[in-house]
């Protein structure tokens, strides 16, 4: 019975008022975004939020450098490479730290403690900064 009743319902919705449905759809989308956001705000641990905000910051800085390169030119190309790859590398390192320390992945990284992951992250970042500063000369 249920399928029978469902089919006419659907057809009536699609034929009667398309704009209404759209409105409802956008409302749904807004609802979804809001739900996602509130869920993220409420359920994400603070350290992961900190990681995320740092990664967003890195994306912004990297995009700015890339746009500057597109507009002005890549004249000291090594400078562009080191500046841009500093953000990209830092982003990658931060992402791996996020993967290793996220409580949701706990099952997969049981053998790696948060302290160990953080130490790796610091070590890798220091090497990255050294290389970038050396390369930009």
């Amino acid at each position: 019975m249920a399928p029978k009743s469902r089919v006419p319902e659907k057809s009536s919705v699609s034929t009667s008022s398309a704009p209404k449905a759209k409105k409802a759809g956008s409302a749904d989308a807004q609802q979804i975004v809001q739900d996602v956001w509130s869920k993220y705000v409420n359920k994400t641990p603070q350290r992961v939020k900190l990681l995320d905000s740092f990664m967003v910051f890195l994306i912004v800085v990297g995009v700015l450098q890339f746009v500057y390169c597109l507009i002005v030119g890549n004249f000291p190309f090594n400078a562009f490479l080191s500046g841009f790859s500093a953000t990209v590398g830092q982003f990658v390192l931060t992402a791996s730290l996020r993967i290793q320390t996220n409580p949701e992945n706990k099952a997969e990284f049981e053998s790696i403690s948060h302290e160990r992951a953080f130490a790796d992250f610091v070590f890798g970042s220091l090497i990255l900064h050294f290389f970038c500063i050396n390369f930009i000369n």
Binding site: V61, G62, L64, Q65, Y68, V72, G73, F75, P76, A79, F80, S82, G83, F84, A86, T87, H129, C132, I133, I136
Partner: peptide, 11 residues
């Protein structure tokens, strides 16, 4: 090289 200042800043 003044052109590199932005990327120095980036680093």
């Amino acid at each position: 090289i003044s052109g590199a200042w932005v990327w120095i800043g980036g680093i």
